[in-house]
Amino acid sequence: MGVVALNKEEIEEIIEKLRNGEIKQYEVTKEEFMEFREVLIKQKDKEQIRGEAKKGGGVVYTHVNE
């Protein structure tokens, strides 16, 4: 059984939940990182979504209101 990757729609839904405060943070694995980033960099408010690298290659994303 392989790793189930997030699709573009799921990633956009996660970003929207970060944006509206429905979730405080979301952690992606190193395997999901490139796909998540590809969707994230196309967002109008991408500067407000911050990623913090974790040991092992994962990244925790949070939304910052500035």
Rank of each mutant, 00 (worst) to 15 (best):
K54S: 02
A5N: 08
E16N: 09
Q43P: 00
A5E: 12
A5M: 14
V28G: 07
E9K: 12
H63R: 11
H63P: 11
E31P: 00
V28E: 10
V28I: 11
Q43A: 09
I14K: 02
K44A: 10
I49A: 06
E47S: 11
R37M: 12
R37Y: 14
T29S: 15
Q25C: 08
V59R: 05
F36I: 07
T29D: 13
V64E: 10
N20F: 12
T62G: 01
I14G: 04
E52Y: 08
R50W: 01
I14N: 04
G57K: 03
R50C: 00
E16C: 07
K44E: 14
E31M: 12
T62M: 05
A53K: 04
I11S: 02
E27R: 12
V60K: 05
I49R: 02
R37Q: 13
E35A: 14
K46P: 00
I49W: 02
E27D: 02
T62Q: 04
R19P: 12
Q43F: 03
I23E: 09
E31Q: 13
N65W: 10
G57R: 07
Q43N: 06
E27L: 11
G56A: 06
D45G: 01
E66Y: 09
L18Q: 09
G2W: 04
Y26L: 05
Q48R: 14
I23W: 04
E38W: 10
G58R: 03
N7W: 03
K55G: 03
F33Y: 15
G51L: 04
T29R: 10
E12F: 05
K8S: 10
I11K: 00
K44T: 06
E12P: 11
G2P: 15
V60A: 03
E35W: 00
E22C: 13
K30S: 07
K46G: 01
M1I: 06
K46T: 10
V64M: 09
A5V: 08
K54Y: 01
N20D: 15
F36L: 07
M34D: 15
Q25T: 13
G58Y: 02
L6I: 06
E47T: 03
E52L: 06
I14D: 08
G21F: 09
Q48D: 13
E32F: 01
K42S: 11
K8W: 05
N20W: 10
F36D: 07
I15Q: 02
F33G: 10
E52G: 05
I23M: 09
D45C: 01
V3I: 11
L18M: 07
N20K: 09
G56P: 00
T62C: 04
E47V: 07
N7I: 13
L18C: 11
E12G: 04
